[in-house]
Amino acid sequence: MSVTLALVVGGLTSVGVYLITSRSLTRMLLGFALLGHAAVVALLAAGGEAGERPISGDAPVDELSDPLPQAFALTAIVISFGLTLFLLALARRQAQLTGDDLVEDDLEDRRIALETEAEGDDA
């Protein structure tokens, strides 16, 4: 696995993780896209040295790239494409409901926390 690929995976992951800690859903979406790319590059790197085109039969077997991680990567790309669309739909619905795409607080949890605090003050 080349150092370049490792660095690319690291870079994409760190930017992706930074973005998904954001409260804005569109940023989170971009973060997940980057994380998905990081995972795909990691899968490709797991295949080892790059070689000739596999399956087409132009080169002897020992010179080929490993096709299995490529198949994994393709599947992962398709899935992350679908999920990106779903997240976009979710962000749009949130924008319709509240006017922005920020993740809200868990109201029920806030309420219970406040009640507990109030009880603590009484005692």
């Binding site: 696995m1 995976v9 997940f32 990081a38 795909v40 990691a42 790197a45 797991a46 080892g48 997240l87």
Partner: peptide, 19 residues
């Protein structure tokens, strides 16, 4: 968000296992 993140970790873990 939680589950997507876990799925991404799963993929990277797969890469490690395969390598």
């Amino acid at each position: 968000a939680m589950n997507l993140f876990a799925s991404t970790l799963f993929l990277v873990g797969l890469a490690v296992v395969y390598a």
